[in-house]
Amino acid sequence: MPPMLEIRDLYVQVEGKEILKGVNLTLPVGQVHAIMGPNGSGKSTLAAVLAGREDYEITKGEVLYMGRSLLDLDPEERAREGIFLAFQYPVEIPGVTNMYFLRAAVNAIRKHRGLPELDAMDFLALVREKLRLLHMDEALLKRSVNEGFSGGEKKRNEILQMAVLEPRLCIMDETDSGLDIDALRVVADGVNSLRSPDRSILVITHYQRLLNYIIPDQVHVLLDGRIVRSGTKELALELEAKGYGWLERELTVSKL
């Protein structure tokens, strides 16, 4: 069985500036991997490239998703194929209710998978179940997508969408940023409930904190556009204790 995600020697530029400089990464099916790195190391760029942002220029390398090349697909095709990006900054869409948005998304994906579209009643039943799981209020459905949501509500709304859309590959871009400890726990519980042998999760984070709740199978460190070290969850603890400066210094030394 091919891995869920395989990134080979990926180079990416944004507005002429090179951000990713040869990223290599393999995420097997059913595993949870974490990517850690300081600000500006290219974490969010990597997430956006995987989801298909168009203003990012891929100058070299390839990305395979379940053995198939990903980079030629439109963002919605990737989504329908099972890739889900939980945004660091979920976008507000005034005038479109959460409910409406979610149903449009669910049915687009179901159609792609050859499943019948859900009618309003079935859809509501599905969403209600997921809401309970995430301790979320149904009133949220009637509000415009993310509009006026608090930071925590936005992140929970991302997890709700993830739960409803049932992706194969979840990419969580700094989902922990801006969350207090209680909200963090709810989000982590939500993510953990989605762990399954046929689903993989890529957790992108600056801090180790989230990894106390979502235990990764492997941890990778992204520094200046490259994965410089990979290891077990203990690597995250080591980073927490010593800071990114430690790795940076070590790398400089090894270059000399």
């Binding site: 989801a51 963002p75 919605e76 869409i93 998304a105």
Partner: peptide, 16 residues
């Protein structure tokens, strides 16, 4: 982009 990452087509996303 946000709408499209949820599986909604570009055309639908515009309409929405």
């Amino acid at each position: 982009f946000y709408l499209r990452t949820r599986g909604i087509s570009a055309e639908q996303a515009r309409n929405l």
